[in-house]
Design a protein around this nucleic acid. Structure first.
Lengths: 250, 250
DNA sequence: GACCTTTCTATGGTCAGACCAAGAGCTGGC
DNA sequence: GCCAGCTCTTGGTCTGACCATAGAAAGGTC
């Protein structure tokens, strides 16, 4: 027999020795799931909580850091009403950081990310065509006008472009979809700017193409034409990906 | 004038005083973005890195915790080749935790989460219909057979159900879409089980309906009928949501 | 020489205690 | 009545110690 008899027996796997800070997280999660902690609530001061849980302050702090990284907590010094450690609602920022790291690590292939982006933004465009308010449509138009300015460099263009797509996602009304859209766009910011620079002289015609695409999307939204908005968004993203990365999505 | 003149001047906002651990994270992110750190690489021991960066070990540890929470690092004691702190690729787990917290905090309304789920799983079903392997289709069938077992209680049913949907997402071939699907399903586990229990005697007919839906989805995948697979997945999720939460998605 | 046991060492895990820094509120002098 | 300065709370950081784990190395036994 090559292995030990007590190994790989179905149904048995080693217990993961929980680290102290994970136990602290578990206690906090209990409070959240049971509804005893809601967004805006304050947690006890680190020193107090450490004593209450019977652990060191360092363990509490490491737990807080992990939760802060997930956008669940917000920490601030001082005394006032906004100070201390409070339960936050920052899923968008946390999602963005998470995705940025994993895109940089190439855990998600670029093509997969772009396909996901198409899926998300089609959904948002469809919903936005149905329920965007007049004010939201007007805001989109203003963004497009700003992108037409002659002194709009590539970085500013990209930031306005991002705001345009994010505004559509938020007009779509689905928080989760909007936050995922934001996360994808922001995580692509650096590679996108690098691709813009690589374009060299080809930039101007491509930017004009993007401006034209955006107007078509905006027009479809104004016309409340969900199918057209979806189609234009998909065409827009695919053609941009093709020109910036010289690849097709198949 | 009600406010100070130096406040809310467009373009000016207070600098966020970076905390030491955030600076440590920035250094690590630099290494990752520049490609000097790739998945599997080891970071220096905490004590060494602390000295190299001129900060305390506690600051390094807090940074590591934040990155661990994002699925970017993996920490293990000991001396062997797998010990120490290494760059990991665990986006799925990190996404799941993140979403679980924010669903529990109701930062994402249930209806939004379910709509996002429909969007994701439609995409996966469409792609899976085109590219699922014979082995993957067979695995799906085995899962469905297991769900037919008479001794399959609600929790086991839910776990098999999850594996069925996740398997389709993975057969779809898009890592990001699959990981988001996993995260959504897992984050819904607790509320889903609670809803199952609330059903009481209505459980049996509903479970039969789910089994039937699954067979229809499976059949569409076998037939390589992408449009039908998409439609069946959407119908399945909508009808389940309607019966479990007694609400319509509109 | 092969193999098992013991010891060593590197590394993360945890803790205690100290001091710093920001910020709201209190207090006393003007 | 108002402003400066003190005070207290709370997170931010550092130091240094010791614990726990798991390979690696050393040593002993057959």
């Amino acid at each position: 027999m090559t292995g030990s008899e007590i190994d790989d027996r179905a149904g048995w796997r080693p217990v993961a020795r929980a680290r102290t800070y994970e136990l602290v997280i578990d206690r906090i999660e209990e409070q959240i799931v049971s509804g005893q902690l809601v967004v805006g609530d304050r947690l006890p001061p680190e020193r107090d909580l450490a004593q209450m849980l019977g652990v060191s302050r360092a363990a509490v702090r490491e737990a807080f850091r992990a939760l802060e990284a997930q956008g669940v907590l917000r920490m601030a010094v001082g005394t006032g009403p906004d100070s201390g450690t409070t339960v936050a609602a920052l899923p968008s920022q946390a999602l963005t950081r998470l995705l940025r790291f994993h895109v940089a690590l190439a855990n998600f292939p670029m093509a997969d990310v772009v396909r996901a982006r198409i899926m998300l933004e089609r959904e948002s465009a469809r919903t936005a065509a149905q329920r965007a308010t007049e004010a939201e449509l007007e805001e989109l138009r203003e963004l497009l006008d700003e992108m037409d300015a002659p002194d709009c460099d590539r970085e500013r263009f990209n930031d306005l472009d991002t705001r345009f797509h994010v505004a559509i996602a938020e007009a779509g009304g689905n928080r989760l979809v909007a936050d995922m859209t934001i996360a994808i766009r922001e995580s692509l910011r650096r590679p996108l700017l690098a691709a813009f620079d690589d374009l060299g002289d080809e930039w101007d015609p491509i930017a004009d193409g993007l401006r034209h695409d955006h107007r078509l999307i905006h027009r479809a939204l104004l016309a409340r034409d969900a199918a057209e908005a979806e189609a234009q968004v998909e065409r827009h993203i695919r053609s941009f990906y093709r020109s910036a990365w010289l690849q097709d999505l198949g």
